[in-house]
Each structure stands twice: as structure tokens, then as C-alpha cells.
């Protein structure tokens, strides 16, 4: 993962988000419905990216735990848009060869009769390249 060129600048370019606007209020983390499942929480994504400490985020499963529900984006008083930062990190990870988080082989076991197509399309969009 060393060759990823995952710099804060890259994340800024992909996400369009300036992490330096953060005032460290933690409202994103307070709002996150998936807090429990994340090793690193939205405010940590913002802070780590702001400080160029990206290795930990990159290696963490937390990038695959964001629901993209935009609660953090909606409520952030500073318009930092943490979900966009998380998405940028996740994309940087899965854009590598062989880094897909969801494989077609896993699908038959994961679905049932009722599950809408939308769920599969969305999951593939978020977790694979």
C-alpha cells in the first residue's frame, strides 16, 4: 500500500473537501449511525487526513463501514463533509488491483428472495471497482 500516493492533497482533490475547515466539535461522530462498527470515527478521518496520517485509515476496515447516509455532512457546522472524505479514502483503496471488498462469489449466500436489486448495485458501487 506504500505506492498509493495517498496524500492529503489527493484526498482533497478526489473529495473536493477541505479538512482544515474542521473546528473539532465531533458533531459528525455524534451523528454517525454506524459509530459502533467503525474503528476510526468520522472526526478521526477528518483529523487524520488534515494531518496527513493516512496509513491507519487505509488499513482499517472503517472505510467499508460508512453508510453514506450523509448525516455527518448535513449536520457539520463547518461544511467539512466527512462522508466525502471517507469515500475518497475508500475509493483510493479499492482502485488498487485486487482490492475489491465485495466479490461476486459472496453474493448467492448474501441475498434472499426479497432483497431488491438496488442493494446489490449499491453495494458493488461502494465496494468494488
Amino acid at each position: 500500500m506504500a505506492n498509493l500516493n495517498l496524500t492529503s492533497e489527493n484526498i482533497k482533490r478526489i473529495s473536493g473537501v477541505d479538512a482544515r475547515k474542521c473546528m473539532r466539535c465531533g458533531k459528525c461522530t455524534a451523528s454517525c449511525p454506524n459509530f459502533e462498527d467503525m474503528e476510526y470515527h468520522p472526526h478521526q478521518f477528518v483529523y487524520f487526513i488534515e494531518n496527513g496520517k493516512l496509513d491507519k485509515l487505509l488499513e482499517s476496515k472503517s472505510v467499508f463501514k460508512c453508510l453514506s447516509c450523509f448525516a455527518c455532512v448535513e449536520r457539520c457546522p463547518r461544511q467539512v463533509e466527512p462522508a466525502k472524505l471517507i469515500e475518497a479514502v475508500r475509493l483510493t483503496v479499492i482502485r488498487q488491483q485486487g482490492a475489491n471488498h465485495l466479490l461476486p462469489d459472496e453474493i448467492p449466500a448474501a441475498i434472499d428472495e426479497e432483497m431488491p436489486q438496488q442493494a446489490l448495485v449499491a453495494a458493488f458501487r461502494k465496494f468494488t471497482k
Partner: peptide, 27 residues
Amino acid sequence: VKGQVGKIVNDGGKLIVHGSDLLMNEQ
């Protein structure tokens, strides 16, 4: 508590305050 509140909901008469405690790194 160092952190902001993200959401307050009314669940059956109780106000459920979702906040963050940044020093504990907890919700």
C-alpha cells in the same frame, strides 16, 4: 463533555441525546 451533540430525538417521552465525547473517542 468535550464534543458536540449531533441529534436529539424523542423516543416515547424521553429525549435521547446523541453526542460525542472526543476525549473518550466515544459516542
